[in-house]
Nucleic acid binder design. Structure first.
Lengths: 142, 142
DNA sequence: TCTGCGTTGCAACCGAGTTGCAGATCGCAC
DNA sequence: GTGCGATCTGCAACTCGGTTGCAACGCAGA
């Protein structure tokens, strides 16, 4: 959470730790689940949209973040806490709540192996579940 | 493919078969896989973008089409040939080729049952595979 | 023929993302 | 500490897919 910690993370991913990048990373870590460019714009307050955009692009390229497409219209991001890059480049499982709009990273253990159709070269798998999150379900009951 | 055939499909889905809608549906059927609003704009030539947009929205609402989010930035659509609406509202499996940009509907048989995390209410599952399609792979070899 | 409502085309708008550019800042050599 | 090239940042403008308001059209029923 503190500057030192964020700086280490950036260095570990071969990213020059500028003041703005540390600020953006701190903002990211305050989100428990996923976040969008717009979320960061609000969270950082001072940092420009285009700077955040370029920072996000950089972080994704350096595998500090991964992109989530939840069909909500705005790209979501999520911090990669695991270092490994498995042979199947990326394997994502997410849950998108259609009520509150939040998107959660789910444990990859839930994804089973599937038989790929012949002839296709698989690079990335996105398993996106949509529905209602536990919070929204309990809220509705009360 | 002909007018009569398209008209029947529309009526079967409780959609009033106007000339424009038949034209749009015919254009849709010429696509072997999925298509976007922009694709239809080109394919129909005469029909306005907003009309196509409203037609797509209508077709989706009447379960004649389904929406595919392939993360390409533009929404893709695909004709629903199966009538059934299973209890798990929708279950989509698609392959998006990162080279040619096309998106294919895959057989749903390939999707295995997964253990959903507790507390979440599942309404829709999107299984999106990204990589290279057979066409692009063979092209590259030559 | 007249009327009303659904449909369509046009134009304008919206919002997320993206880019060009000039000024600020950084890291390094001196 | 100073100077310099490279990188980073903020601003503004732009792109593009999608969406909406509105007026005109056209078809079905009176």
């Amino acid at each position: 959470m503190n500057d030192k910690h964020c700086e280490e993370i950036l260095l570990h991913h071969d990213i020059r730790p500028t003041a703005v990048r540390i600020l953006v990373l701190q903002a990211m870590e305050r989100f428990s689940d996923t976040f969008s460019l717009a979320d960061l714009e609000v969270a950082t307050e001072t940092v420009d949209k285009s700077t955040i955009f370029r920072t996000l692009t950089l972080f994704v390229a350096h595998h500090l973040l991964h992109i989530i497409e939840d069909g909500s219209g705005s790209t979501k991001y999520c911090i990669c806490y695991n270092d490994h890059h498995c042979s199947l480049d990326e394997l994502h499982c997410h849950f998108h709540c259609e009520q509150c709009g939040r998107t959660f990273c789910l444990e990859q253990a839930h994804i089973p192996a599937i038989k790929y159709p012949a002839g296709f070269e698989v690079r990335q798998i996105n398993y996106l579940i949509k529905g209602k999150c536990p919070d929204c379900r309990t809220k509705q009951r009360n």
